[in-house]
């Protein structure tokens, strides 16, 4: 329990750091978000109208420390400010359903790539020097060296644009209304296949290699030998004994990979015009919609922190030693 509380405390500190960073970054940097508004009016707006708008957005002067505490109070109420590009919609509303899509894409690609990579890693370690071990690590290392978004572009070009097997964008067809029915869910997967697939391809190699290398070590350890000597079936030895132990470093890496995959899926979303955070984020940056941009950053960060906390729980379940030291 203590272990979990400690971790929780750490995540709270991290969240606080992210909040503070979020507040001070824009104020330390040059530039003025309100001028960005002109972008959409191409000069049709006079300086007087701009001044009036500036007040509308609350971009007024005040001591920094007061602004900081007001900001914190707002964040705790779930108020992330007002989007400039989507005015008068509050940032929280604009972000609203976008997070679901990002979590869907990043989450399922992470889980899928972890599962596939780990399984293949086990296989590679078990049949050292077999064809899996010879070819897959190298292939996936090469694939992993490509930027995800580039894989996404190529996949979109070949499978979407040229062959027409997959849709070219969006999370579901324009003519389908969302609902829990087979058509919608099927459509959902059809649209998610390429985004998830490319991220999985790009990230699987890491899991494969790390699992393979730890597995090789674990397979040589005494307790595995003992299990083998007892005449347990290979499947049991591999999965129940070796893999469970070899999994630990990977699970630690899992938490770390969360942030990474999320970053990558942001880019992938841009390529597939997937309606998640990534797209919103990039557009906010391009529109210089700073409130929205920071809101997205904060939400992504908090999501990663929360996911890390879940990984800690998983770790606790996998590794009894943490339980022991904790009690």
């Amino acid at each position: 329990m203590l272990y979990l509380l400690k971790r929780l405390g750490f995540y709270l500190i991290a969240a606080f750091a992210a909040l503070t960073l979020n507040f001070f970054l824009p104020r330390l940097m040059p530039g003025d978000p309100a001028t960005a508004l002109f972008a959409r009016f191409r000069g049709r707006l006079g300086p007087e109208a701009l001044e009036a708008l500036r007040e509308t957005f609350g971009l007024t002067e005040g001591p920094l420390i007061t602004q900081y505490f007001t900001y914190l109070a707002h964040v705790f109420r779930g108020d992330l400010g007002i989007s400039i590009a989507y005015f008068p919609a509050p940032v929280s509303e604009v972000i609203g359903n976008g997070l679901v899509w990002t979590v869907f894409i990043a989450g399922s690609s992470l889980v899928l790539s972890f599962a596939l990579g780990t399984l293949l890693g086990i296989a590679a370690a078990w049949w050292r020097r077999g064809w899996i071990d010879t070819w897959l690590p190298a292939t996936f290392t090469l694939l992993g060296a490509f930027p995800y978004f580039w894989l996404a572009m190529v996949a979109l070009y070949l499978l979407g644009f040229t062959l027409g097997w997959f849709p070219l964008g969006h999370a579901y067809g324009d003519d389908i209304s969302p609902g829990w029915n087979a058509t919608f869910i099927g459509d959902l997967f059809r649209h998610a296949a390429l985004p998830i697939g490319t991220v999985v391809l790009g990230t699987m190699g890491g899991w494969l290699l790390s699992m393979r290398n730890t597995m090789i070590g674990v397979l040589g350890s005494d307790f595995v030998n003992l299990a083998r000597a007892k005449g347990l079936s290979p499947a049991r030895v591999v999965l129940r004994y070796a893999a469970r132990n070899a999994l630990l470093p990977s699970v630690t890496g899992f938490g770390m990979a969360l942030g990474f995959v999320l970053g990558g899926s942001l880019l992938t979303e841009v390529v597939f015009s997937y309606p998640g955070q990534g797209y919103l984020f990039v557009q906010a940056v391009r529109n210089q919609d700073y409130p929205l941009m920071q809101g997205v950053f904060l939400v992504i960060t908090l999501a990663v922190l929360a996911a890390n906390w879940c990984v800690d729980l998983l770790y606790l379940w996998l590794d009894p030693r943490t339980r022991d030291t904790a009690s």
Partner: peptide
């Protein structure tokens, strides 16, 4: 803390400013 804050989004925010 720096490890757990997602890198690319942070990089995007800083680079944007």
């Amino acid at each position: 803390v720096f490890l757990v804050i997602p890198g690319l989004p942070l990089a995007i925010v800083i680079a944007a400013y």
